[in-house]
Amino acid sequence: MRDPDCVFCSIIAGELPADLVVETEDLVGFLDQRPVFKGHVLLVPRQHVVTLPDLPAALRDPFLATAQRLATAVVDALGAQGSFVAINNVVSQSVPHLHLHVVPRTKGDGLRGFFWPRTKYDDGERAAYAARLREALG
């Protein structure tokens, strides 16, 4: 199922560009267009699901397993010391399609609480970050 007005559904369908990091039969992970830190990945189900409580039971384990792999990949591929993993449900959910954030973290990176400053990629840099993460995922 797809919502024709959903940005993430359009990315999944290949109608909008994105730097893909991981693809499975049920899930897609791609770099956030406005990352908190470079390498910030969004993991989404291919099926249009609005919030975590709406996620079908059959997708719960694959969704979390892929999130675990991404949390490891940002450390292995990007030299991060850890990661911040989060899901917003309705409030602060900028796109009404379930998405899990995996943000690479290092001590002293400036992230405080839930104030998320955003950064930008330089030309061509986003594709290089996506390639590094894909390599770490195997």
Results as ranks from 00 to 15, higher is better:
residue 2 R to W: 05
residue 123 D to V: 14
residue 81 Q to L: 05
residue 105 R to S: 10
residue 34 R to C: 00
residue 131 A to W: 05
residue 40 H to F: 07
residue 87 I to G: 02
residue 125 E to W: 01
residue 24 T to P: 06
residue 92 S to M: 11
residue 115 F to P: 00
residue 86 A to P: 11
residue 131 A to K: 13
residue 130 A to F: 02
residue 36 V to P: 05
residue 27 L to Y: 02
residue 20 L to R: 12
residue 91 V to P: 12
residue 104 P to G: 04
residue 108 G to E: 12
residue 30 F to T: 01
residue 16 L to K: 13
residue 15 E to V: 10
residue 111 L to R: 14
residue 45 P to S: 06
residue 19 D to A: 05
residue 44 V to S: 01
residue 93 Q to D: 09
residue 44 V to K: 00
residue 92 S to W: 12
residue 21 V to C: 05
residue 63 F to C: 06
residue 14 G to P: 10
residue 33 Q to V: 07
residue 79 G to H: 03
residue 12 I to L: 02
residue 28 V to T: 12
residue 66 T to N: 08
residue 72 T to L: 14
residue 125 E to T: 01
residue 2 R to A: 15
residue 94 S to H: 07
residue 123 D to I: 09
residue 112 R to F: 05
residue 110 G to R: 08
residue 44 V to D: 00
residue 29 G to T: 02
residue 112 R to L: 12
residue 92 S to Y: 13
residue 39 G to K: 14
residue 25 E to K: 10
residue 33 Q to P: 03
residue 83 S to N: 12
residue 129 Y to I: 08
residue 38 K to I: 02
residue 114 F to E: 11
residue 52 L to S: 07
residue 35 P to G: 01
residue 6 C to W: 07
residue 73 A to D: 04
residue 8 F to L: 00
residue 41 V to Y: 03
residue 36 V to R: 04
residue 97 H to C: 06
residue 30 F to M: 04
residue 51 T to K: 08
residue 130 A to E: 08
residue 60 R to V: 15
residue 138 G to C: 01
residue 97 H to N: 10
residue 97 H to P: 12
residue 87 I to V: 15
residue 66 T to V: 13
residue 28 V to M: 05
residue 125 E to V: 03
residue 65 A to I: 04
residue 80 A to F: 08
residue 4 P to L: 00
residue 21 V to M: 03
residue 13 A to V: 09
residue 133 L to D: 10
residue 80 A to I: 08
residue 44 V to E: 00
residue 86 A to I: 11
residue 23 E to W: 05
residue 3 D to W: 06
residue 102 V to I: 13
residue 88 N to D: 15
residue 36 V to E: 05
residue 101 H to T: 07
residue 38 K to Q: 11
residue 20 L to H: 07
residue 132 R to C: 06
residue 128 A to D: 15
residue 121 Y to C: 06
residue 27 L to Q: 03
residue 125 E to L: 07
residue 16 L to T: 04
residue 64 L to S: 06
residue 76 D to N: 15
residue 47 Q to S: 15
residue 119 T to D: 07
residue 125 E to A: 03
residue 33 Q to W: 02
residue 62 P to H: 04
residue 104 P to R: 04
residue 11 I to K: 05
residue 16 L to E: 09
residue 110 G to H: 03
residue 101 H to I: 04
residue 27 L to D: 04
residue 136 A to E: 10
residue 72 T to Y: 11
residue 119 T to Q: 11
residue 73 A to E: 07
residue 29 G to W: 01
residue 71 A to S: 14
residue 38 K to E: 09
residue 48 H to Q: 09
residue 111 L to S: 11
residue 93 Q to W: 03
residue 7 V to T: 10
residue 19 D to E: 13
residue 74 V to G: 12
residue 121 Y to S: 06
residue 76 D to S: 14
residue 61 D to F: 12
residue 21 V to I: 04
residue 9 C to Y: 01
residue 52 L to V: 11
residue 85 V to C: 14
residue 136 A to D: 12
residue 18 A to Q: 05
residue 38 K to L: 13
